[in-house]
């Protein structure tokens, strides 16, 4: 196993000993084991977990032996670990149903939602590694600082419909919005951002590429039948769709099943080609004098809007 060398793996401290020796960590710990987490297990099954413990000052995998029941998910076992052996373990979670997108982590090196990853997927004889998302700065243990995503989100010009119908209402056909319903399934778990090699392996590219989650958001706005802004200059420029090399990892990890690459990123790339690389399309627009939406060349900011 590449990531759990003898040097990296520490022996598990007792819960009490670790609490006493790590006051700061204890203060941050989520003293909120799942109401469904049952410390007592009757099945006799046990698994070895290698859980990343640490913060910005450093960290390593810590080995634990944790009992589990048939039908449980990784998050259940993490909760049992927190309830019985590691009360200062920091893990972010909320719905436990794959809908809130809080419990994103890397299990055996693969970005997943802990609450949707069944224990039956793993060989119980092999240790399971649980690490925080790699793309974002660590806060503590399995919790990362995902504020990069909210900074990018704040730069995207919001939905801007044209004037309403004479009766004051806005109408659109269901067939026009069917396509963008898929994008509304996003739960903002940021697993796609985590796995995207453009920002995962090249920190400096966070300035140049908004990431798959925000390509989905931009596609949702760009394809909206009532939206009146042309975001293509931003999609090509500030948000950097040209940085994506469509290797589809975002689609592979999306727990909501959104076809991020095929339905959002590639259509956006094609729309950029329409605007910047296709003289025939340009000529067509000139001849037909098709009404243009308002092009946006500068990112949106709350200050400017107010």
């Amino acid at each position: 196993m590449a990531d759990a060398t003898t040097e990296e793996v520490r022996a598990a401290p007792t819960g009490q000993a670790r609490q006493e020796g790590d006051g700061a960590a204890r203060a941050e710990a989520p003293a909120r084991p799942s109401p469904r987490a049952r410390p007592e297990v009757t099945s006799g099954r046990e698994v070895t977990l290698l859980v990343w413990r640490g913060d910005a000052s450093g960290g390593s995998f810590v080995e634990y032996r944790v009992p589990y029941e048939e039908g449980e998910v990784i998050l259940d076992v993490i909760h049992r670990l927190a309830a019985t052996q590691a009360p200062d373990l920091a893990v972010r979670w909320n719905c436990k149903a794959g809908k809130c997108g809080s419990c994103s982590a890397e299990v055996n090196g693969r970005p997943v939602l802990q609450c949707m990853t069944r224990m039956s997927l793993f060989d119980p004889r092999e240790p399971i590694t649980v690490a925080p998302m790699k793309t974002f700065p660590i806060v503590k243990d399995l919790v990362t600082d995902v504020s990069f995503n909210y900074e990018v989100a704040s730069r995207i010009p919001p939905f801007s419909p044209g004037p309403p119908d004479p009766d004051g209402k806005r109408r659109m056909a269901q067939t026009d919005v069917d396509r963008i319903q898929e994008f509304r399934e996003c739960i903002e778990c940021f697993l796609c951002q985590d796995v995207c090699h453009v920002i995962r392996d090249h920190e400096e590219n966070k300035r140049l590429f908004a990431g798959p989650r925000f390509m989905v958001r931009l596609a949702e706005l760009e394809m909206h039948p009532l939206d009146n802004l042309d975001r293509r200059p931003l999609i090509r420029g500030e948000f950097g769709v040209v940085m994506c090399n469509i290797t589809k990892c975002c689609t592979e990890v999306c727990p909501a099943g959104i076809h991020i690459t095929d339905n959002a990123i590639i259509p956006l790339k094609e729309r950029v080609v329409d605007s910047y690389f296709d003289p025939i399309a340009w000529l067509g627009r000139k001849i037909t004098r098709r009404p243009r939406r308002t092009p946006v060349t500068r990112p949106w900011s709350a200050e400017a809007a107010s």
Binding site: D3, D55, G109, A131, M133, P137, I138, V152, R207
Partner: peptide, 23 residues
């Protein structure tokens, strides 16, 4: 410079190896 003025940097968690995948 070009691009989005977002906060970058910070210490990342997890093992500093090319991958932790075992499949």
């Amino acid at each position: 410079g070009p691009g989005t003025p977002v906060t970058i940097g910070g210490v990342r968690g997890g093992p500093q190896t090319p991958t932790s995948r075992r499949d």
